[in-house]
Amino acid sequence: MTARAQPTHGFRYYDFLLGGTVAVLLCSNLIGPGKICEIHLPLFGMFSFSAGNLFFPIGYIFGDVLTEVYGYARARRAIWAGFGAMLFATFMTYAVLNMPAANDDYNRALQPALETALGNTWRVVVGSMVAYWVGDFLNSYVMAKMKVWTQGKHLWTRTIGSTICGQFADSALFYPIAFAGLWSFDAMIGVILFNFVFKVCVEVVMTPVTYKIVAALKRAEGVDTYDTDTRFTPFSLRDEGDVRTRA
């Protein structure tokens, strides 16, 4: 059975997924990039990575689930909510860092620590926001289109295929915007390729988890959304798509 688009407030779990998406995005941009971690891998030796990568599997599960269950239009709302939250967090971080600190020992020590941890350059901020906006919209678009093409079959092709497209755009945009002229060309290409391959591999590993969450949500919500009549513009907040009611 097929019905017209159901308003987002008619779903039981959509708001929780939207809130989770925003929370993961803020954490990955505020507390993740400032720390480089090192672990020892057998046969490979020391392995370094940004702590922000820890949030990627969770964030992309949210993105895949939102598009697969609720459709592109509702995933679009979540992407804009995340983008707005990033803008607000960036503005408030700038405001807090530039307010005069109290003249005591604690705050004199705290101010430079906050500037080190949170004081990203404008290029890093712009790069993060542009890469997020383009990468997430591309991920959702490819996944929604592939669902229609495959008639809802072979979910793994959509989760991995959309990640390949979205993460390539994300990495190819962020690092040049943030570090061009500071890093050598070879170093930048190496970092872009490493992060791209790493995130695609993580998506492959996490696909069984995505399968379970998607199946559970489709049963709980009683819907399965196909974007057959959706306008695939990023610049809209309308609910669209055909909602196929599950028996």
Rank of each mutant, 00 (worst) to 15 (best):
T245E: 11
T163Y: 11
V209W: 12
S128Q: 06
A75W: 05
V204W: 08
T159W: 01
L118P: 07
A73L: 00
A180C: 08
F55L: 11
N98T: 15
W156R: 10
C37D: 03
G190A: 12
A23I: 15
Q151W: 04
D136R: 04
S50F: 02
S128L: 09
A113P: 01
A78L: 08
S236T: 15
C201I: 07
G34L: 03
T90Y: 04
A180F: 13
L193N: 05
M129N: 09
V204L: 13
G10L: 04
A247G: 11
T228A: 03
L138M: 14
P7L: 11
C27S: 10
G135W: 05
M86C: 12
L110Q: 10
W183M: 15
M146V: 03
A247N: 12
V205Y: 04
V134K: 02
L54T: 02
D15T: 10
F137P: 05
Y72Q: 10
T150H: 02
L193P: 00
G119C: 14
S171A: 15
V209K: 07
T150K: 10
F168S: 01
V202S: 14
T157R: 12
F185G: 01
P176I: 09
T8H: 13
V202E: 14
F194I: 00
A117P: 00
W122T: 15
F185C: 04
Y226H: 09
V125C: 08
G45S: 07
G34W: 00
F88K: 05
P234C: 00
I177Q: 01
G181F: 04
G63D: 12
M46I: 08
N98C: 15
I31W: 01
L173M: 09
A144V: 09
M92H: 03
P234L: 03
M92Q: 08
A131N: 05
A101M: 10
C27V: 11
S236W: 05
M188N: 11
K147M: 12
G127S: 03
K35L: 13
Q151C: 05
T150P: 02
M188R: 09
E203M: 10
V126N: 06
G45D: 11
H9S: 15
F16E: 02
T90V: 08
C165F: 06
A169R: 06
F198I: 04
G10I: 00
L18F: 07
A220N: 09
F198D: 09
L193Q: 04
T93E: 06
R4H: 12
P208R: 12
L25G: 06
M92I: 05
V124P: 07
L41N: 07
I79W: 05
Y70V: 03
G52A: 14
D239N: 10
E38I: 07
M129R: 01
Y226A: 04
D229L: 07
M46F: 05
N53I: 14
S50D: 01
A95C: 02
F11I: 04
T2V: 12
V200Y: 06
F56H: 08
M143P: 03
R219P: 00
V65P: 14
S140A: 10
S48W: 11
Y13C: 05
T21M: 14
G161R: 08
D136Q: 11
G161W: 13
H40T: 14
W133R: 09
T225I: 10
R231L: 02
F55W: 13
A215N: 15
F232D: 00
Y72T: 08
T157F: 11
T116G: 00
V125R: 06
I61R: 02
D227I: 05
F44W: 13
G19C: 13
